[in-house]
Amino acid sequence: MASVTARPHLHPALALALPAATAKKFLLRSRAASTMDAASANSPDSEKKTTTVFVAGSTGRTGKRVVEKLLAKGFGVVAGTTDLQRARGSLPLDPNLQLVTADVTEGADKLVEAVRGVDAVVCATGFRRSFDPFAPWKVDNFGTVNLVEACRKAGVTRFILVSSILVNGAAMGQLLNPAYIVLNLLGLTLVAKLQAENHIRRSGINYTIVRPGGLTDQPPTGNIVMEPEDTLYSGSISRDQVADVAVEALLCPESSYKVVEIVARADAPNRPLQDMFAAIKQT
């Protein structure tokens, strides 16, 4: 592996001592420099690379894995969270990681500063179970829409959404599928996610929508199967593999303007994600 020249970074603890705007600009520049070095060391071309990624839902079980995998690949990460204390306790202490307060339910205008200056956004949010019957719509529909609109206002042109299989279950003839019924019992969650997907498609932003099957916290037990939208109606997949697909989408031009559905199967061949993305037609 080619060596990468180290660049000075601002440690998160020192960033707290600086004015917020100054600290953020310094961190973004240092992250970008680090990742650009890594990209140039591993790629023969000199085209502009995605260097800094905002992750919404960064302390969730999938979002946390996305953050870790982005950092492992040398990206700068801006982790959006509603609970900074929780984020400090659960996310890695890394000079390429910046924590920012960001609540997708509070509207696009409040999210603009959180995403300004990044190259891409990964949305891995999900509502937390509560007595609020509208929570799925506040987070999985309106929250995602708010984040997309914030990207448009801030000039961010790349958006990865972690959604779910069966969001379009009604059109697929899966109204009686037990998974479709259960997932919609809590505030029509899948319907809310579908509405957010439709907004993304109309937004003009360069998107990849990743629809995983049932999510597990265990390590992968099979290889990834990737299919076009409205194809899979059962199956499960490790959150680690979902994070792999979301991160690879940022690196793979063939993932643009596509909706992909993923599960894991023990009998599936181990294929490169880039090849799988290339096999899916644009929507």
Rank of each mutant, 00 (worst) to 15 (best):
205 I>L: 14
274 Q>I: 00
137 W>E: 14
242 V>L: 04
245 V>W: 05
250 L>H: 01
214 G>K: 00
70 L>Y: 06
54 F>M: 14
122 V>S: 03
157 T>L: 04
231 T>A: 05
110 K>I: 07
10 L>V: 02
28 L>C: 01
71 L>I: 09
18 L>N: 04
230 D>S: 15
158 R>P: 01
121 V>K: 02
258 K>E: 11
165 I>W: 07
142 F>V: 08
270 N>D: 13
191 V>D: 07
70 L>G: 06
189 T>H: 03
121 V>I: 13
279 A>D: 14
182 V>T: 11
71 L>C: 10
257 Y>F: 12
50 T>A: 05
112 V>K: 08
192 A>I: 00
33 A>K: 12
251 L>G: 01
210 V>K: 03
132 D>S: 01
152 R>W: 02
124 A>W: 03
216 T>I: 01
82 T>D: 15
174 Q>A: 11
270 N>E: 03
75 F>S: 13
95 P>G: 14
88 R>T: 11
96 N>F: 04
171 A>R: 10
61 R>G: 07
215 L>A: 09
191 V>G: 09
264 A>Y: 02
110 K>W: 11
41 A>H: 08
36 M>T: 13
166 L>A: 08
92 P>F: 13
100 V>R: 10
160 I>M: 00
262 I>C: 05
102 A>S: 09
176 L>Q: 06
274 Q>S: 12
172 M>W: 14
69 K>D: 05
102 A>Q: 09
240 D>M: 08
113 E>R: 00
201 R>H: 11
84 L>W: 07
134 F>H: 07
100 V>S: 06
211 R>T: 01
189 T>C: 07
214 G>I: 05
207 Y>I: 01
134 F>D: 15
143 G>K: 04
37 D>I: 03
127 F>K: 00
163 S>N: 11
198 N>M: 11
178 P>S: 15
280 I>C: 05
201 R>A: 12
180 Y>R: 02
80 G>R: 04
169 G>M: 10
278 A>E: 14
166 L>K: 05
1 M>A: 12
175 L>K: 04
179 A>W: 12
166 L>D: 15
15 A>W: 06
142 F>N: 10
172 M>T: 09
145 V>A: 08
117 G>C: 07
5 T>R: 15
85 Q>K: 06
275 D>T: 11
269 P>A: 07
209 I>G: 08
